[in-house]
Design a protein around this nucleic acid. Structure first.
Ligand SMILES: NC(=O)c1ccc[n+]([C@@H]2O[C@H](COP(=O)([O-])OP(=O)(O)OC[C@H]3O[C@@H](n4cnc5c(N)ncnc54)[C@H](O)[C@@H]3O)[C@@H](O)[C@H]2O)c1
Ligand SMILES: NC(=O)c1ccc[n+]([C@@H]2O[C@H](COP(=O)([O-])OP(=O)(O)OC[C@H]3O[C@@H](n4cnc5c(N)ncnc54)[C@H](O)[C@@H]3O)[C@@H](O)[C@H]2O)c1
Lengths: 222, 222
DNA sequence: AAATAATTGTTAATAAAATAACATTGTTAT
DNA sequence: ATAACAATGTTATTTTATTAACAATTATTT
């Protein structure tokens, strides 16, 4: 029995934080830092030092008492947990404003995770390359996903094409989806799905801003 | 005593879901539907009907037993809760790829929440209009935020300028921030902050895809 | 050498969120 | 008229996530 398959009951929130810790650690490393304390990580991430230590405990990493955590080691360990050894290939469907912004942002940022294909229906875009990512015709989606062994797709097509695109991706054998359209999509249970809509986030911000404002008014009227 | 200020202890997750419910309800309404059942909302949002009913209970809305919830009424009620009566103005700082994608997407979508100004340092962009949103020089940020009463800002500048931009926005009196740069920013406690990084989401998807793959391998090797 | 301070690692307690259980109520079918 | 059904609304339970408490360790100061 190997020890892969450990880490399969880490809390979902811990997974997200590990990714954020690594982002912070990479930055610290690039600035020449070699060790870091839990309270330093915590303050970068706006969380508590206990939370950080608890997460690191869950992944079985120990720091040293007076120097804190070894940044390089911790980066590697987080990599062992969240990265896949062979690397995972990603496609992006819909090379419009958002698709291009995401490609630009993501390209080359992670060693074990790379966007290697884009798809679009617009003939003007097909054949172009964006930041090293070739844009193929959407009609070739299945062919290329199978040939390249692409496992994850990001959906950035117009909302009205979202569900059809999702169906085609699932049929092509995609294992994970990240849907940025405001149209929630349905996938079989064996496909892992994340959806994100900026409007939801913005409305949440607006709600809490409104709340704070009302609170202040209440205080001043008393 | 008015009944504003109720709803101030709704769970955070409920707030996010209310925004999503409304998005789904608006779509249903535009398709001519007048009533909807909890299990219909649930299935759109990939959650359980109980969750939906519980959220609606928390905001004090009642449906009718055989017809479900009145879509128009529910949209209005959600609006009363999460929107601010006078409307809230939003600015976007950094009119690059992502900034433009967000403006395009958001513009005109919500009545009580509108992006009314963009800021940039690039002289080629200053003076232009994007989807009705004027782009001002970043040097005028404070002036325009104060004059227009802008309460929320979205940060889409290059990461290295994130914290300085955030500081300027806070100094200008911003009450809520939505940070899309991968550089976590610090704000005083009276400013409500949300941060989002696509890489974290993508790495989460990748992790669960990896896990599912490992599980399958384990099953087939047994 | 002893006391102090700063930090980690872990268990215990609390809080937040989701789910389950179930009573209630109209509607439809018999 | 009554039984069966399909919904809602609410309370109870369970699960997940966060925070608190504190013991252990080691460097530093007195
Ligand atoms: N989640 C968010 O925060 C967020 C933010 C901005 C935009 N969006 C959404 O993302 C999507 C894209 O936005 P955008 O601004 O990039 O739009 P866009 O119109 O600029 O880009 C859409 C692209 O998809 C291509 N396309 C259309 N149908 C296709 C298909 N069937 N297969 C492949 N490609 C296809 C189009 O040719 C175009 O290039 C929209 O659904 C928008 O609502 C979401
Ligand atoms: N969270 C995410 O999912 C996500 C996705 C894509 C990009 N990003 C991030 O968003 C940011 C913007 O990305 P992009 O692709 O639009 O980059 P971009 O270079 O296209 O746009 C940045 C814009 O900001 C302007 N700018 C620079 N300094 C400024 C300042 N001090 N004040 C105002 N404007 C200023 C630039 O002139 C440019 O127009 C980057 O930090 C990037 O890392 C995040």
């Amino acid at each position: 029995m190997e020890d892969r398959g450990t880490f399969d009951n880490l809390p979902h929130k811990t997974i997200a934080r590990l990714s954020q810790y690594r982002r912070a650690l990479l930055l610290c490393l690039s600035r020449g830092k070699s060790h870091i304390f839990s309270h330093e990580i915590a303050s970068i991430q706006h969380i508590t030092p206990v939370q950080v230590r608890r997460d690191l405990m869950l992944i079985g990493y120990s720091g040293t008492l007076r120097k804190g955590y070894n940044i390089k080691e911790l980066i590697n360990l987080i990599g062992n947990i969240i990265d896949s050894e062979e690397g995972i290939k990603v496609a992006i469907v819909g090379m419009g404003n958002l698709g291009r912004a995401l490609i630009n942002y993501f390209s080359g940022k992670r060693h074990k995770l790379s966007i290697i294909a884009g798809f679009d229906t617009n003939p003007d875009k097909i054949g172009n390359t964006m930041n090293g990512v070739p844009c193929y015709s959407a009609t070739r989606m299945r062919e290329i996903i199978e040939k390249e062994g692409i496992q994850i797709a990001i959906i950035t097509v117009p909302a009205e094409n979202a569900s059809q695109t999702a169906n085609e991706l699932v049929a092509a054998g995609i294992k994970g989806l990240l849907n940025y359209t405001p149209k929630p999509i349905d996938v079989p249970e064996y496909v892992y799905l994340e959806e994100y809509d900026m409007i939801t986030t913005l409305e949440k911000v607006a709600f809490y801003v409104k709340m704070k404002t009302l609170e202040e008014e209440d205080i001043t009227t008393i």
